[in-house]
Nucleic acid binder design. Structure first.
Lengths: 142, 142
DNA sequence: CTCGGTGCAAACCCTTTGCAGTAAA
DNA sequence: TTTACTGCAAAGGGTTTGCACCGAG
């Protein structure tokens, strides 16, 4: 089953049509695995494949993909949302943001289970977490 | 040295005047220690003390206080900034956000040193971090 | 054929900025 | 008196929405 099959199944199951525009946005997201694209980034990359696509369609598509858990939608301190393809189930939203070049990369470890269980003992129910480090990436840290 | 003394020293050192408006915003922030207020929250609470204060002044004041490290300015996923009085130096920005009532509280632990030193070994320079848990607070988790 | 999807432009929300008048120091 | 600060309203940036047309199923 190809990536498109997986997605179109998900769309189908929710009465959504797989239009050219949605396929285009999906292609862009797949071609940028691991990157955190803003809506405008997605628009510009989509326009290279389909010049007439509009920003509203991009937003609406990304919104739907986020609700189907095909992409993650995260607000960073810069004040706009960024969208990232969901790689697999155990993605943990650990970002490291370079304060110089602005690059956002992922931290793969999961050292937070202790902290989560500590909070659950206090009566919280933890559903998700989002950890961001701010600093300088190896290239800029010179 | 009272709280106002500390602040007015900081303002003085930066050629800033301690106006009625700034004093009002500071009072509001002190009266809401530990809370994460939006600019509009601050405006409404300030208007109770000084009805003519404007939103632009609130934003400008909070911006100055943030640059003086008197308050923290953080963007949450709802898409707007929230401001919080800096309590002390070892504040770690560990937030827990209730997905039901929307309350934001603080997590005091610091279990992230391992993770930070791991990243520094990889060549990163870590300056700060921001950890958010999403879930349900003890009250709503029933 | 039907109904959801699209592009455009206008509306929206939050935040910032320009300007003429105001008030700290 | 001097210079920074204020309130207002307008502008800005990102996101959402209304509407008439379009196209996937």
């Amino acid at each position: 089953m190809t990536k498109e099959d997986v997605i179109s199944k998900k769309l189908e199951n929710n009465n959504y049509k797989l239009t050219q525009q949605r396929a285009t946005v999906l292609d862009v997201m797949y071609e940028n695995k691991g990157k955190h694209l803003s809506a405008e980034d997605v628009l510009l990359k989509s326009k290279q494949k389909m010049p007439n696509i509009g920003i509203a369609t991009v937003y609406r598509t990304l919104e739907r993909l986020a609700s189907l858990e095909v992409v993650y939608k995260t607000m960073f301190d810069e004040g706009k949302y960024r969208y990232e393809l969901c790689e697999d189930e155990n993605h943990q939203h650990h970002h490291i943001i370079c304060m110089d070049c602005g690059n956002i990369s992922e931290v793969e470890e999961d050292l937070l289970n202790n902290l989560e269980s500590h909070l659950e003992k206090k009566g919280y129910k933890i559903v998700d977490h989002d950890l961001k480090f701010y600093g300088y990436c190896p290239d800029c840290n010179k």
